[in-house]
């Protein structure tokens, strides 16, 4: 997987293979969980893939009761809400993903600061990143 281009396609291929891969700038060390061909910190094009631990902390979250059409088609909605979060990864960068293993009908039970761990879920054809509370 070393020489994949730094694109969303590569990100999703990694997920489908069970890896959460970020990109690191060899020049300044900046790390991003979202691949991109140019380092946003120093604008140098010398990047490498790094496997991320997948451990993180919830920075903010929501429970969606009015979903976008793809998730409505997958059965989500008022009677079946789901949670999504902004997660700060242990290595520093942030990423957005769904939360699994939480009770969306009791949003008070989810909290900012919750420790979570990445996993890959399958929705239709797509492999998606999700996070589950640790323990």
């Amino acid at each position: 997987m070393a020489e994949r281009d730094f694109t969303r396609t590569s990100f999703e291929e990694h997920l489908a293979e069970g890896y959460l891969m970020g990109v690191r700038c060899r020049s300044c060390g900046a790390l991003s969980a979202v691949p991109r061909p140019l380092c946003p910190a120093c604008r140098v094009e010398d990047l490498e893939w790094v496997e991320l631990s997948g451990r993180g902390v919830v920075e903010g979250f929501t429970v969606i009761h009015v979903p976008p059409t793809p998730l409505a088609a997958a059965g989500f909605g008022r009677d079946n809400p789901y949670a999504s979060a902004v997660v700060r990864l242990a290595e520093g960068p942030w990423i957005t993903a769904q939360l699994v293993g939480v009770d969306p009908k009791r949003p008070e039970s989810i909290r900012v600061g919750l420790k979570v761990r990445a996993e890959v879920i399958h929705q239709g054809e797509a492999a998606r990143l999700a996070f589950r509370p640790e323990d």
Binding site: V34, G60, F61, T62, I64, Y82, A85, T96, A126, R128
Partner: peptide, 18 residues
């Protein structure tokens, strides 16, 4: 990266609220 994570527009601001 945000849409596949299930975020809607109210969802973004909801995350800020939490």
């Amino acid at each position: 990266y945000e849409f596949p994570a299930g975020f809607t527009f109210p969802g973004f601001y909801a995350a800020m609220a939490t």
